[in-house]
Design a protein around this nucleic acid. Structure first.
Lengths: 182, 182
DNA sequence: CCACACTATGTCTGAAGTGACATAGTCGTT
DNA sequence: AACGACTATGTCACTTCAGACATAGTGTGG
C-alpha cells in the first residue's frame, strides 16, 4: 500500500540514485511543479519504502551525525513503479482558495477584488514566461522512452495550466473593469 | 485563525441559512468543484466557528437523536468573511497524480499510457459538456454584486480548466499516437 | 580565523482530511 | 407492514502534511 508520495520518490529514483536531501531539493518548486514534499516527509517515506523492499541504499561517509545514504531502486521497486504508472489515477478533490474567494467575491468591493486578480495575473504571466523559456530549451518533444519526455510533457501541462489561469484572471478583471474605484 | 474550510462554510452560509448536512451536500461534487469536505469535518469546523462567534444556530426538532441545527452567519462572521475575500490566497502546492504518472511514463508501455489518457480525456469531455449546459442556463454573466456572479465565475474557471486539461490529454495521445499496440 | 551557507539526517507536534461507525426519525414504495 | 432512501448529527481512528527543533561536517568569503 505505497502512498502517492512513495511513488513520487520511486519516480525520481528511476532517473538516478539520490540521497533523501537531493530528492527533497528536486521536489522544491518550480522544478517539481506537480508534487512537493518537505524533507521530513521524504525521510519518513524512504524508511517505509526500505521496509517494503522497494529501495535500498549505500551508506557513504558524509556530513552530519549520520552517514549519508545514497538510495536506489530495487527490482521490486522498479516493477511496482512500472505497474503504478498506467493505473488510472484516483480523483483528488479540487481545493482552490482563489476560486473559493471568487465564489464569495460578490460580498466584497469590486476594486479590491480587481486588485487581487491583477496580482494573480502578474504571477501567472511570470511563471508562463519562465516555462516558455524552459520549453524553448527543448527543441521540440523528446521521444517517448527518453526520461526527458516526462519533463517535457509535464512542462506542457504546466504551460497549458498557466495560460488557462491567466486567461481566467483577465476575464475576471474585464468583468470588474471600468469600476471607478481602485 | 479560521481555516480555509471555515471560510468555505461561511461563504456558503452567506447565501442563506443551512444545516450542517445541507452544507456537506452542497460541497459534494460536481456542484462544489472548488472545495470539498466530508460531513464529519464540517460538523467539527462548525463547532469551532460557533466557539469563535462567527456563526450561530436555531435548533429545530428534526430526525435523529439530536435536534436539527440551522446555522446562520453572525455580524462578526460576515465581517471576517468580507475581510478574507480580498486577502491574497496562499499558494497551495500542486499535487497532481496524473502529471506525476506522466513524469514516469517513459518507463511504461506506450499503448497502456495512451489508454489511460484516452480515459481521462473522455472524463474531461463529459464534464465539459455538463459545464457547457450549465453555462447556457445562465444567459451571460450576472452582474457583480449578485450572488449568482460567484456561481458563474467559478463555472467559467471550471470550463477553462476542463478545456486545458482535455487539450493536454489530446496532445499526449498525439505524442503516443501511431504506436502499433493498444 | 570566524561566520555563514550548504549538505545531510532525523524527531516531534499539531492541523487537515478520509472513511468507518453509531443513532434515529420521516417518507415513499412494494 | 416491511424495506430502503434520505435527512441529520456526531465520534473515532488513521493517514497526510507542514513547520519547528536538533545535530554536525564541509566549503567559501571576508
Amino acid at each position: 500500500m505505497t502512498s502517492t508520495l512513495g511513488f513520487a520518490i520511486l519516480a525520481v529514483l528511476a532517473r538516478g540514485d539520490r540521497t533523501g536531501y537531493d530528492i527533497a531539493a528536486g521536489m522544491r518548486r518550480p522544478i517539481g511543479f506537480f508534487w512537493t514534499a518537505g524533507h521530513s516527509q521524504i525521510h519518513a517515506e524512504l524508511q517505509k519504502l526500505l521496509a517494503a523492499g522497494l529501495v535500498g541504499y549505500e551508506a557513504e561517509h558524509g556530513p552530519g551525525p549520520q552517514d549519508k545514504k545514497v538510495y536506489h531502486l530495487t527490482d521490486e521497486g522498479s516493477a511496482e513503479l512500472r505497474g503504478w504508472v498506467t493505473r488510472p489515477p484516483k480523483e483528488r478533490p479540487e481545493r482552490d482558495e482563489l476560486v473559493l474567494k471568487t465564489y464569495a467575491a460578490w460580498l466584497a468591493e469590486a476594486g479590491l477584488v480587481r486588485r487581487m486578480f491583477a496580482d494573480q495575473l502578474a504571477a501567472h504571466e511570470a511563471r508562463l514566461a519562465e516555462y516558455e523559456r524552459e520549453e524553448a530549451a527543448f527543441g521540440g518533444p523528446p521521444p517517448f522512452g527518453d526520461p526527458r519526455f516526462g519533463n517535457y510533457a509535464t512542462l506542457r501541462c504546466g504551460l497549458g495550466y498557466e495560460r488557462h489561469r491567466a486567461e481566467w484572471c483577465r476575464w475576471m478583471i474585464d468583468q470588474l473593469g471600468d469600476s471607478e474605484s481602485l
